[in-house]
Design a protein around this nucleic acid. Structure first.
Length: 959
RNA sequence: GCGGGAGUCGCCCAGCCUGGUCAAAGGCGUAGGGCUUAGGACCCUAUCUCUUAGGAGUUCGUGGGUUCAAAUCCCACCUCCCGCACCA
């Protein structure tokens, strides 16, 4: 039957709503507090967002059915810059953006007009996203909803950030950022044309002296200062004379401009042509040695300072420029200076001789200094020397040190002796701001940082991680790694929506810092929404009392004007629900949000309120590739729900991959799921609850298998291996049931509805967290009273497991299998089939061998000896082949099966086959099947097959 | 570079944690059959090689090792993907 997903979904959502099933208040049951990273409402949700929320919802619904009082809330993260950027683009009438809003996101024209106001964007998509979450059937307590610009939230963030500052975890310092000089604002990927991340690098400026000027040269390899033999100047460039702080420098105009942003005072004093510097000498700072300035065309004004120090032994460009100069027509005085220059080799690297630059240039066949091959040669020499090179004895105190270590050491030494400075420069120029201006690197010197580099803080966080449950386990090492490298992190910015820093109102709390302990806020947002709490009344004392349990309710009541018992009720709410039992998020938040979440919790809350668990999921691919606007393969979640129904989407997302894997989503799999659910639905509509008085073998078997399934599925869900759990519910059950039906049909049974009803009721209950709407409908069809989502999760009961039933059914299957195999190989059409089971002596031997193997003995010789030494079993020496094969049989069984076989020694193969094989065998093969024991006196055995019989492996004769 | 993950039978993908039920689930594709006026959908059967008796051989990136037994554990190597910050 075709299912009308939409009607069913609306019907059950309404009932959940009426019953207030997901509105959670403290009670005397044990609680679970499940949270997911709240959405940033700058676009509608797509399937990818749906994954994280669906996983969390399944988790919440599962715990609810297990009898926990589950709180699953949701908020909306308005804070941040992308929305601000969007608003600006709307204001600037950005065609691309408006087109996307209109066509891709389906935003009505009137709404777009209001988008010049950032809050309007956020609230539009907030409602859009919320509607999608409701349509997906998420079991959210909406009474606790909030946004991060609500006044009370701001008070909460002020409290958070003040608390951190009191603990000396917030510091002030300088920090480089990508910067738009026109907007006077830091830029990130969201703010640039083409969405490029401004990428910058740190050059060391070596200060060479020339008259009373300093000529700084920029280098990434400060260690090569020991090999400098001349400087390179481009004669075509007109350099600027500038004063930098108290020094007079000569640099290119571009460099001077860059320096303006690097927290330096610059004044412009005049100009000098490059050509005027040629032939003049400069002093190498650390050894006061005079070197000559020479002309080179490869020197660019836009890179570094427009001046380059020359290390011809290790820098292919320098080597080549010298060679070019030797060949060029230049003034004789200059030529004689050039000819005097000898490269100084300062790094020993395996694979290179005295002059690595020269060797590389020759090997690459470089023509002149404009040859692009020089880049490759440079890369090679630099790479090999950096990782494999050691400094030679002519580097003084640094001799013998590996280049990779020496670099930083020498940098520090040069800066300490005032021989060097720092220049920060973009490496992926030009980076253009969305406003069109070209970006630069700027050093912000009054930036506020959260001091995540603090050792004791890290220690505390590590302690928390160690005691936490991390799912999946593989991601744990990644967290440890992140904690390791984390340093200070800017926690305030100057633009965007958000809460102002309480002590410095020019700054706004940065959006990754105002979203780390907000789970606690869910416990009070209920009181904000019902009007109990008002922002203006809330003080530090209030939050301290609620969240840290310090202070005096009476005094706080006086300060805030809130009734004392209300204050205590709120505190109780927090104390009941905290700590967070499970935090869900995508894996992209591992190195930032999730780690900060732990860091901030351990900083603010006592250990008893530290989070218990983190669950991390991978992203969603669409037909194997990443979803992106440009690919046009973004499926908006609400559209997908419209087209396919919420439950099929939920199932398809979960079945497509295990937690951390990227889930490859495709529409075919959704319709596959739909078909599957439809047939399950039909099945449920037919079944009636009936009592069955006497159970047959297959009844005991399917009941046992169902118990196995319950424990398997429960275990999988507990570990958030939802794909596996769902697979078992949907498919593994199916194959068990189809065997059961085969057996029942062979016997022409008409009394199986009761058993099937029982099994499928369990199945539907377990399906309910995954596909909540349709499970309710099926539950109703099965005739159950009440909601499946509030019913009890099926519990494993050992008393319903009949090991013998499982084993004997396996025995039946393998016997049928063997017959089928023989038929396949021999291609004969059977007239008659005879089965011979092993006699009791063989059974005795079998068990004897099984016991020996269970103790670890697998050696044929020893087993044989032991068998012969016992009078009971010594006769077996006439049949060593049997022992050999039996050992092999047993070894190929898994351990659990061996154990059951050991337990069920009294299993009578012959009578079981007589009772069970005949009907199904007739159905399968169309002929009569006779069963004998090899010791039967009236045995029919014309081909002498019976003697081959082994326990659990009867001999077969097909005629 | 640092850190993490992955490589499975035509393709996608499970199994690996907890070794034996593994020639290895499921899906797609392919072939045959059923249903149907036809197409689609659906259902059944087959899908590494050899085999007229339930068997054997060769397979899970490559090469070693541990074990009675390895896709699974250990070591080395090759290849691919992702993250590395002030941004949600």
């Amino acid at each position: 039957m075709r299912i009308n997903w939409k009607d069913i979904e609306i019907k059950w959502r309404q009932k959940w709503n009426e019953n207030k099933d997901f509105e959670t208040n403290p009670n005397d049951k044990p609680k679970k507090f499940i949270t997911v990273a709240y959405p940033y409402p700058n676009s509608p949700q797509h399937i990818g967002h749906g994954r994280t929320y669906t996983l969390a919802d399944v988790h919440a619904r599962f715990y609810r059915m297990q009898g926990f009082n589950v709180l699953f809330p949701m908020g909306f993260h308005y804070t941040g810059t992308p929305i601000l950027g969007m608003a600006k683009r709307v204001e600037a009438n950005d065609k691309e953006l408006i087109n996307n809003l209109k066509n891709l996101y389906g935003v009505p024209e009137e709404s777009i007009k209001t988008f010049v106001e950032p809050v309007k964007i956020a609230s539009y998509f907030h409602q859009e996203i919320k509607a999608g979450m409701i349509e997906m059937g998420y079991s959210i307590d909406w009474r606790r909803e909030f946004t991060t610009i609500d006044p009370v939230y701001s008070k909460f963030i002020e409290w958070q950030i003040n608390t951190l500052r009191e603990k000396n975890l917030i510091i002030q310092g300088s920090h480089p950022v990508g910067w738009c000089p026109k907007d006077q604002n830091p830029v990130s990927q969201h703010d640039t044309l083409g969405d490029v991340e401004p990428d910058f690098t740190e050059y060391i400026l070596i200060k060479f002296k020339y008259e009373d000027y300093i000529i700084p040269t920029a280098t990434l390899r400060p260690e090569t200062i020991f090999g400098v033999v001349n400087l390179w100047v481009n004669p075509e460039i007109i350099y600027k004379k500038i004063t930098v702080d108290d020094e007079k420098w000569i640099v290119s105009a571009e460099c001077a401009y860059k320096l303006e942003f690097l927290d330096k005072k610059i004044t412009y004093d005049g100009e000098i042509k490059g050509s005027e510097l040629i032939g003049k000498s400069a002093i190498v700072p650390h050894r006061n040695e005079s070197i000559v300035m020479l002309p080179a065309s490869f020197v660019e004004s836009g890179t570094g300072t427009g001046m380059v120090m020359s290390v011809p032994a290790h820098a292919p460009f320098d080597h080549q420029a010298l060679e070019d100069l030797k060949k060029a027509k230049i003034a004789p005085e200059l030529a004689s200076l050039v000819n005097k220059i000898m490269p100084i080799s300062i790094i020993q690297t395996e694979g290179y001789g005295e002059n690595p630059a020269k060797e590389a240039v020759e090997r690459f066949g470089v023509k002149d200094q404009s040859d692009p091959k020089l880049e490759e040669a440079t890369k090679e020499v630099y790479g090999k020397e950096f990782y494999g090179g050691k400094l030679k004895s002519n580097t003084g105190q640094f001799a013998g040190i590996k280049v990779a270590y020496a670099k930083d050491t020498i940098k520090d030494w040069l800066i300490k002796n005032k021989h060097a400075g720092i220049l920060l420069e973009l490496t992926n120029t030009p980076v253009k701001c969305r406003c069109g201006a070209e970006c630069v690197v700027k050093v912000l010197n009054n930036q506020w940082f959260l001091n995540y580099g603090e050792k004791d803080w890290k220690k505390l966080a590590t302690k928390c991680f160690d005691s936490m449950n991390i799912l999946p386990q593989e991601i744990r090492t990644e967290f440890n790694y992140v904690i390791g490298w984390l340093r200070e992190r800017a926690c305030a910015r100057q633009h965007g929506l958000g809460t102002k820093l309480p002590w410095d109102k020019d700054w706004i709390v940065e959006s990754l810092s105002d979203s780390v302990i907000y789970m606690a806020y869910y416990t009070i947002s209920k009181f904000v929404n019902n009007g109990t709490l008002k922002a203006e009344k809330l003080s530090k004392e209030f939050f301290d009392y609620i969240f840290l349990d310090t202070g005096d309710a009476n005094k706080i009541s006086v300060i805030t004007g809130i009734q004392e018992n209300t204050i205590n009720e709120i505190k109780k709410e927090f104390q009941y629900f905290y700590p967070v039992d499970s935090r869900h998020s995508g894996r992209d938040l591992v190195p930032n949000h999730l780690t900060f979440f732990v860091l901030n919790h351990v900083a603010i809350f006592p250990e008893s309120n530290w989070p218990k668990e983190i669950v991390v999921n991978g992203s969603v691919l669409m037909n194997g590739s990443k979803m992106s606007k440009s690919m046009g393969n973004i499926i908006p979640l609400r559209k997908a729900i419209q087209d396919y129904g919420a439950d099929p989407i939920r199932l398809a997302i979960i079945i497509s991959a295990e937690l951390l894997q990227d889930a490859d989503f495709n529409m075919e799999s959704v319709s596959g799921i739909q078909n599957k659910i439809e047939s399950l639905f039909d099945e449920c509509s037919r079944l009636k609850a009936e009592r069955l008085e006497t159970l047959e073998a297959e009844d005991r078997w399917i009941k046992s298998k169902t118990q196995n399934m319950i424990s398997q599925v429960t275990l999988a869900v507990e570990k958030m291996r939802l794909r596996e759990a769902l697979h078992d519910i949907l498919f593994a059950f199916e194959s068990d049931l189809s065997w059961y039906m085969k057996r029942a049909n062979a016997k022409n049974r008409s009394n199986v509805s009761g058993i099937l009803h029982e099994v499928n009721s369990i199945r539907i209950a377990m399906l309910s967290p995954f596909a909540p709407h349709i499970a309710e409908e099926m539950w109703e069809k099965l005739g159950h009273i009440g909601m499946v989502s509030t019913s009890r999760w099926p519990e494993f009961s050992q008393s319903n497991v009949d090991a013998t039933a499982i084993q004997s059914e396996e025995y039946l299957k393998s016997t049928i299998d063997d017959i089928a195999k023989i038929l396949k190989v021999t291609k004969i059409t059977p007239q008659k089939i005879s089965i011979y089971t092993a006699d009791s002596f063989k059974s005795k031997i079998y068990h004897s061998i099984l016991e020996k193997i269970m103790t670890g003995q697998t050696n044929m010789g020893i087993i044989m000896k032991e068998l012969i030494s016992s009078p009971d079993t010594q006769e077996i020496k006439k049949n060593p082949d049997f022992v050999q094969k039996t050992i092999k049989d047993i070894l190929s069984d898994p351990t659990e099966i061996r154990r059951t076989k050991l337990e069920s020694m009294d299993f009578d193969e012959k009578s079981f086959l007589v009772n069970e094989l005949a009907e199904i065998g007739k159905k399968e093969f169309g002929v009569e099947i006779q069963v004998f024991s090899e010791s039967d006196s009236d045995i029919y055995d014309p081909k002498d097959k019976a003697r081959h019989a082994r326990p659990f492996k009867p001999a077969i004769l097909i005629e």
